[in-house]
Design a binder for these strands. Structure first.
Ligand SMILES: Nc1nc2c(ncn2[C@H]2C[C@H](O)[C@@H](COP(=O)(O)OP(=O)(O)OP(=O)(O)O)O2)c(=O)[nH]1
Ligand SMILES: [Mn+2]
Ligand SMILES: [Mn+2]
Length: 342
DNA sequence: TGGATCTGCCAC
DNA sequence: AAACGTGGCAGATCCA
């Protein structure tokens, strides 16, 4: 593709990879108007990704009883998250309408429904707790949805008019900035000028002043000990903090910022998951756990148990840890993963 | 034919 | 890619 676009058609290269000019989606978006094939290629990329990875890929691994059984690795992700392989059930599409179609294929066994419970703004709550940031804590006490507020601010729309895609983008901005994203990277991702991105960054840390100092402290502390540690005691060594290579060292600093947060969120979620499992046993429930996705749990629920299981799941998740801000859970039920959305 | 690497892209 | 973090998978390419 690189050869066709940049040599044969002579389109304008945007950025480079290790081996030549990049043809990734962000680059193609910028040269759409130079040749009609670019839009076609973008559409092909989207459809082929979905067809190969999720269409054929999932059909290939589905068992004869209609279930898909993945391997959940407990010692792969360095932060304490699980990972899922063969297949990866942690990256089933949700962000585009066409991609979301695949979630309709995840259904409960006959006579049951799916219950989906996902922590609300989980890592922002963890940051609020660890950084003791007055802006974040105040927002959570007031019941503010920060992803929504951030979206309203960066896209200049009324908070009530924020759509799903905008909130999703704002999520990326919120976590990106918290974990060391710079104005340049923010501009690239939003498709705006670096200067404009710098204004967004400035506004973010003005609203949440303690986040920056917390991140600086974490990096300093990690340089001294050589590892990060969650409040439950999960340690991650970060030896690259002393690398002579600037790039490697910078990357290590961002890992040090992220690991205690993502790690604590993983600790909390795992505690909740074990408690949910214990409760199901204690209740002698017919309902069962079928999947987890980092801060989300999916249960196959018998209608007779629906209310009890819903209450039990929410309570276990909210009470898995006691932070300076409340833990909140979004929960929904439905006949498929796609439809179990509040 | 198959392993290793690279690019690109899906999710949290 | 110097430029949020954590993952896994498909396809192309290079090479044995
Ligand atoms: N560094 C980073 N972390 C992310 C990103 N997306 C998701 N995460 C992490 C932080 C989130 O708290 C966690 C769970 O993802 P969710 O999609 O459930 O988002 P969150 O819980 O923040 O918001 P929610 O209220 O559930 O929509 O995964 C990202 O783009 N960058
Ligand atoms: Mn969540
Ligand atoms: Mn989630």
């Amino acid at each position: 593709m690189r050869e066709v676009l940049f040599e044969e058609l002579g389109l304008t290269p945007q950025k480079k990879t290790k081996t030549g000019y990049s043809t990734d989606a962000a680059s193609l978006e910028k040269i759409k108007d130079q040749h009609e094939i670019v839009t076609v290629l973008l559409e092909y990329r989207e459809v082929e990704k979905l067809r190969s990875t999720y269409g054929q890929g999932l059909l290939d691994v589905a068992d004869s009883d209609g279930r898909i059984r993945a391997t959940f690795n407990q010692t792969v992700a360095r932060t304490g998250r699980l990972s899922s392989e063969e297949p990866n059930l942690h990256n089933i599409p949700v962000r585009t309408p066409l991609g979301r179609e695949f979630r309709k294929a995840f259904v409960p066994v006959e006579g049951f429904e799916l219950l989906v419970a996902d922590y609300n703004q989980i890592e922002l709550r963890v940051i609020a707790h660890l950084a003791e940031d007055p802006g974040l804590i105040g927002a959570f006490e007031a019941g503010v949805d920060i992803h929504n507020a951030t979206a309203a601010s960066i896209f200049d729309v009324d908070p009530d008019d924020v759509n799903v895609e905008q909130r999703s983008q704002a999520k990326m901005v919120s976590y990106g900035l918290a974990y060391g994203m710079e104005a340049y990277g923010l501009g690239q991702r939003l498709g705006i000028e670096t200067g404009e991105a710098a204004e967004i960054l400035k506004a973010y840390f003005a609203a949440f002043p303690a986040v920056k100092s917390f991140m600086d402290d974490i990096v300093e502390q990690t340089k001294e000990t050589g590892y990060t540690e969650t409040i439950f005691g999960r340690r991650r060594p970060i030896p690259d903090l002393t690398s002579p290579n600037f790039r490697v060292r910078q990357a290590a600093e961002r890992q040090a910022m992220n690991a205690p947060i993502q790690g604590l969120a993983a600790d909390i979620f795992k505690i909740a998951l074990v408690e949910i499992d214990r409760s199901l046993t204690n209740m002698s429930a017919q309902s069962r756990l079928v999947l987890q996705v980092h801060d989300e749990v999916i249960l196959e629920v018998h209608p007779d148990e629906s209310n009890a299981i819903k209450t039990m799941t929410i309570e276990n998740m909210k009470n898995a840890a006691e932070l300076r801000v409340p833990l909140e859970v979004n929960v929904a039920t439905g006949p498929s993963w796609a439809q179990a959305k509040a």
